[in-house]
Amino acid sequence: MEINNRIDKIAKQAFDKSSMESVNSGFTESIMAKISEANIANYLTITPIINKRTWFIISFSILIIIILSLAFIPANNNLIIPNVFTDTNFSNIIIPNINYHFIKINLNSATFYSIISFGIFFIIQILLINKMQQHTEA
């Protein structure tokens, strides 16, 4: 018991005697500079209006629509997308044998319209975001 008490006393002395380690000079200034930089960076960083999670949900929903439409909508409901390249016949103007490279794409009409709708909403959203951003900055 007495030994334990002495060990306790010496351990206490050891941690007093060992004294504290000291940081290099300029330690505080360095942290304050980093904090200042971080604050400026935060101020300058434009936080996205649509976060990653929302983008994931949008993409996932579109994917589900495409898969469902491909799986369940009858094949006779197909829509043939007009092939601008083949109909206009740019083959001799731009790239030789372009008709060979671009085949007609057969898509289900629901899929086609969902892609077109997504594209339109995407463009509207970009315009809205731009407007909101300008409003915030003002």
């Binding site: 942290i31 304050m32 904090i35």
Partner: peptide, 17 residues
């Protein structure tokens, strides 16, 4: 923000240790 330096000075040696 600059007042944070007081807290740093107060604890820097112990935190470093």
């Amino acid at each position: 923000d600059n007042k944070y330096s007081v807290l740093i000075d107060r604890y820097k040696d112990l935190i470093f240790t």
